[in-house]
């Protein structure tokens, strides 16, 4: 995600105008505040895949729909847009580890308390992990891809990946499962502006009101149901229908 702001542009030109060398940014004399200068996220818009291949997306669709099944409680992971969310996250700065510390060495033996030590970026985890899963499925299920398996077969396989009982060729099953599980949950419960949580299905599941930002009435009335519908950073669909 790149948040381009007017302020950064102004700051850059101000620095360029200084007679002295660049000093990062020098601020003095007043608050450096510009009206209407906020940093909104770039909304995800529907459209072609940006990182995943169509085959990879079909597998992710199938996985997220088992992780978060469609039922009477609400949309499943696929219809809630988890695959779109994952695709756009991988296409952005998250996919390339822009904030993570990535210098080696990467020793073979690590302590669980030291956290993930893999040199792989999220993009590499998905690309390599899904390729290994495809190879595994083809060999194990008579040529069928993950998405062609029955729901029961998919669940059994996912449990095996999660526990590490299933060995994928050349890739950590646990790492693949953890990546998809973490990102699917993020997609289901993050603000819909990022492409998942369609119809605010995740928020409705638990009763989270989103970005309303003022619950003084709730605190004043303890142990009462909250009845207002959730609101996203982009408002509510009803507020922005064409013609309004």
């Amino acid at each position: 995600m790149v948040y381009k702001t007017r302020r950064e542009v102004l700051a850059a030109s101000a620095v360029a105008a200084l007679a002295t060398p660049a000093l990062g940014r020098t601020i003095s004399g007043e608050m450096p505040w510009e009206p209407n200068d906020a940093h909104p996220p770039a909304p995800v818009v529907p459209g072609p895949l940006q990182f995943l291949t169509p085959d990879e997306a079909a597998t992710i669709d199938a996985i997220v729909d088992r992780l978060i099944p469609s039922d009477e409680l609400g949309l499943g992971g696929k219809d809630a847009g988890c695959t779109v969310f994952i695709d756009r996250q991988l296409a952005g700065s998250y996919g390339t580890n822009e904030t993570r510390y990535t210098k080696g060495p990467f020793p073979e033996h690590t302590l669980p308390s030291q956290g993930a030590q893999s040199p792989l970026t999220p993009r590499e985890q998905y690309r390599n992990g899904l390729a290994a899963l495809a190879t595994y499925c083809k060999a194990t299920f008579d040529g069928r891809a993950f998405e062609a398996l029955s729901a029961a077969e998919q669940d059994t396989l996912l449990k095996g990946l999660q526990k590490g009982d299933v060995k994928l060729p050349g890739f950590s099953a646990k790492m693949l499962f953890a990546a998809v599980h973490t990102n699917a949950m993020e997609g289901y419960f993050a603000d819909p502006v990022y492409g998942g949580n369609h119809e605010m299905a995740g928020w409705k599941l638990v009763g989270f009101p989103g970005t309303r930002y003022d619950y003084r009435d709730v605190i004043a009335n303890p142990n009462q149901p909250y009845t207002r519908p959730p609101v996203s950073i982009q408002g509510r669909a009803e507020w922005t229908k064409p013609g309004k």
């Binding site: 940093h39 990022y194 930002y213 950073i233």
Partner: peptide, 10 residues
């Protein structure tokens, strides 16, 4: 900003 602050993912 109140329009963008409540963003758990970000």
């Amino acid at each position: 900003n109140i329009g963008t602050a409540a963003d758990e993912l970000r």
